[in-house]
Design a protein around this nucleic acid. Structure first.
Length: 470
RNA sequence: GGCGGCGUAGCCAAGUGGCUAAGGCGGAGGUCUGCAAAACCUCUAUUCAUCGGUUCGAUUCCGAUCGCCGCCUCCA
C-alpha cells in the first residue's frame, strides 16, 4: 500500500506520488520571529518534522524547507516597543527558535531561509507578475490583481463574491478590488526598507513563501504544509502569486494541521491564553510533549491542559518502564539470534499502515501499546524461553527503530555529572541491599526515602533494585 | 451571512456498511513485596449527539435538528 495523504486542495485523501520517484520536497511555513513561539506554534514544527523523518525512514530522499519570517508588521511593532532595531528583534528570536526546536528534539530543516535574504528574488517575482498583468503598482505599493487569476479561492473553497460581501477589513479605496493583496509595501519613515523599481519599501507577507519555496524546491514541488489558519488567505495567495508568474502547478499536496486549543478556544498571542514552548519544555520532558501531540491525529484540534500532558506522561511511562524491564531481564547489549515472530511482524506492519494512512500517529501509537502488552505478558511468565527472549529483543528493536523518527524515548545523551551521580546512587543501593539482607529495615528505608526526596525513585523487585530519575 | 470541521465509555482518543467498536488516562479487583512505592495482570461502551431515510443490515452513507469549534482580518 502506498502512502495516503489528505490534500486540502482536493479535500480528500490521495495516494502520495512524488514528482521524482524516491524524492520529496516539503515546505513548511515557519515562525515569524517577533517573539518566542508558543506550544500551539510547536504543533506543525513538531508533527511535520516527524512526517519528514518518517518519509526518510521509508527511504524517500527528503528535502525539508522551513522559512523564517524576519520582516513584517509584528517585528516592526516589537522593535518600536522595545526601542531596538528590527534586525535585533529578528536575531534574538531566530536564535531562540533554533534553541527551542532543538529542545523539543525537532531536527533542523535542510534549509531555513530568511525572508530578508531573498528580497531580490521577491522583486523579480513581482516584476514578472506586473509584466503579465497579474499585478499593478499604486504609489509605490504593488498589489496582486485577484480577478486576473480565475482559480482564486480553490484551495480554501471560497468564491470571490462571498469573500467580498463578508469582508470585514477596511477597504483601501485606491485598490482596484477589495481582495487585491499587497506584494510590496512602500516604506513609512523609520521602517526597514529596500530599493525596488517602485521606490523604497518592503515585501508583503505572502510573497516570501512563494519565492523561497520555489527557489529551494522548484516551481512545482510535492508538499506544502502549515496550520489550518493559513489556508486563507496566506496559502491561497501563495498559489495565485506563484502560478500567476510561472503558469506551472505550484504545489501537489497541501497539508494543514489542526489547532491547539485551551479550554476549547484556540491558543493565540492575542487572546493571551498561551504558554511558550520554552516554558512547557522547562516543565515537562520533550518526549512527553511529543507524546502529547502524537496521541492525536494532526488534523484534529487538540486541547491543551496540564492534565492532558500528565496523561501523555503516564502513557509514555508505560512504554519506558517496559523497555527498562526488558533491559534488566536480557541485558542492554544482548544479541541473540532472533526469528521474527508472527505477532511482532503483524503489529509492525499495522504500525506502518497506520503511519502510511495520512500519518495516523494515534493509531500507530496504539499498536506500540499492543507490543508493550505482549512484552509484559512475557516478562511476567515463570520461565522465559529463548524464544521469549528473542521476541522481547524484537520488541525492543522495534521501539528503537521507530524512535528514529518519533523521538519519544529518553535521550541517550547524559552529562558527565549524571554519570557520576549514577555511580554514587549505585553505591548507596549496594549498601542498602546489604542492609536489607540483614533486615535492617529502618536504615534501608531511610536511604529509599532520602533518595526519593532527591527525585530518585527506587523500585525493588525479585530481580534486584532499579532506580530512575523522576 | 458564506465556507469547512467536529459530537464514540468517567476523561482523552482511533476506527469500520455486517465478525469481540483499537489504544491511553482514571477507577475497581488481583499478583509481587519486610513494608512501601512502582510495575504487571484482569475487568471497566448491547453502544457511537437526536430524529428520520437508503439498505437484508449503519456508529459508519444521505437528509434534517440540536450543540461545539475554526476560517472569512494578523495568526501554526
Amino acid at each position: 500500500m502506498a502512502i495516503q495523504i489528505y490534500n486540502t486542495y482536493t479535500g480528500r485523501k490521495e495516494e502520495f506520488k512524488p514528482i521524482q520517484p524516491g524524492k520529496v520536497g516539503i515546505y513548511l511555513c515557519g515562525p515569524t520571529v517577533y517573539d518566542y513561539f508558543h506550544i500551539g506554534n510547536a504543533r506543525p514544527l513538531l508533527m511535520f518534522d516527524i512526517f519528514r523523518r518518517y518519509l526518510s525512514y521509508r527511504h524517500y530522499d527528503v528535502k525539508y524547507v522551513v522559512n523564517v519570517t524576519d520582516i513584517d508588521d509584528k517585528l516592526i511593532k516589537k522593535a518600536q516597543e522595545e526601542h531596538v532595531t528590527v534586525g535585533e528583534v529578528a536575531r534574538k528570536f531566530t536564535d531562540a527558535y533554533f534553541e527551542d526546536i532543538k529542545k523539543l528534539r525537532i531536527e533542523q530543516p535542510d534549509v531555513s531561509p530568511r525572508a530578508t535574504d531573498h528580497i531580490p528574488e521577491m522583486i523579480d517575482l513581482i516584476k514578472r507578475l506586473i509584466a503579465n498583468g497579474h499585478a499593478y503598482e499604486l504609489d509605490g505599493d504593488v498589489y496582486f490583481r485577484v480577478r486576473s487569476y480565475p482559480p482564486y479561492g480553490r484551495l480554501s473553497g471560497k468564491n470571490i463574491d462571498d469573500l467580498q460581501s463578508g469582508a470585514r477589513v477596511e477597504v483601501d479605496e485606491r485598490k482596484e478590488a477589495p481582495l487585491d493583496f499587497a506584494l510590496w509595501k512602500s516604506a513609512k519613515p523609520g521602517e526597514p526598507h529596500w530599493d525596488s523599481p517602485w521606490g523604497q519599501g518592503r515585501p508583503g507577507w505572502h510573497i516570501e513563501c512563494s519565492v523561497m519555496s520555489m527557489k529551494y524546491l522548484g516551481e512545482n514541488f510535492d508538499i506544502h504544509a502549515g496550520g489550518v489558519d493559513l489556508i486563507f488567505p496566506h496559502h491561497e495567495n501563495e498559489i495565485a502569486q506563484s502560478e500567476g508568474a510561472t503558469h506551472v502547478k505550484f504545489v501537489n499536496y497541501w497539508l494543514h494541521n489542526g489547532f491547539l486549543n485551551v479550554e476549547g478556544e484556540k491558543m493565540s498571542k492575542s487572546l493571551g491564553n498561551f504558554f511558550t514552548a520554552r516554558e512547557i519544555v522547562a516543565k515537562y520532558r520533550p518526549e512527553v510533549i511529543r507524546m502529547f501531540f502524537l496521541l492525536k491525529h494532526y488534523r484534529s484540534p487538540i486541547n491543551f491542559s496540564e492534565e492532558r500532558i500528565c496523561e501523555a506522561r503516564q502513557a509514555l511511562e508505560r512504554i519506558v518502564s517496559t523497555l527498562d524491564s526488558i533491559n534488566t531481564l536480557i541485558g542492554v547489549g544482548a544479541d541473540i539470534d532472533r526469528s521474527e515472530s508472527e505477532f511482532v511482524r503483524g503489529l509492525k506492519q499495522e504500525f506502518i499502515e497506520a503511519m502510511d494512512d495520512d500519518f495516523n500517529t494515534a493509531l500507530a501509537i496504539a499498536k506500540l501499546f499492543e507490543l508493550v502488552k505482549e512484552a509484559n505478558l512475557i516478562i511476567a511468565k515463570e520461565t522465559i524461553t529463548e524464544n521469549d527472549k528473542s521476541i522481547l529483543m524484537e520488541i525492543r528493536e522495534t521501539f528503537y527503530e521507530y524512535n528514529t523518527f518519533l523521538s519519544i524515548l529518553p535521550g541517550e545523551q547524559k552529562s558527565d555529572s549524571m554519570v557520576n551521580e549514577g555511580a554514587y546512587i549505585d553505591l548507596l543501593l549496594e549498601i542498602r541491599r546489604e542492609l536489607r539482607i540483614k533486615q535492617e529495615w529502618k536504615l534501608a528505608d531511610q536511604i529509599r526515602d532520602r533518595l526519593n526526596e532527591l527525585n530518585i525513585e527506587i523500585k525493588d523487585s525479585k530481580d534486584g533494585t532499579i532506580w530512575r530519575r523522576k
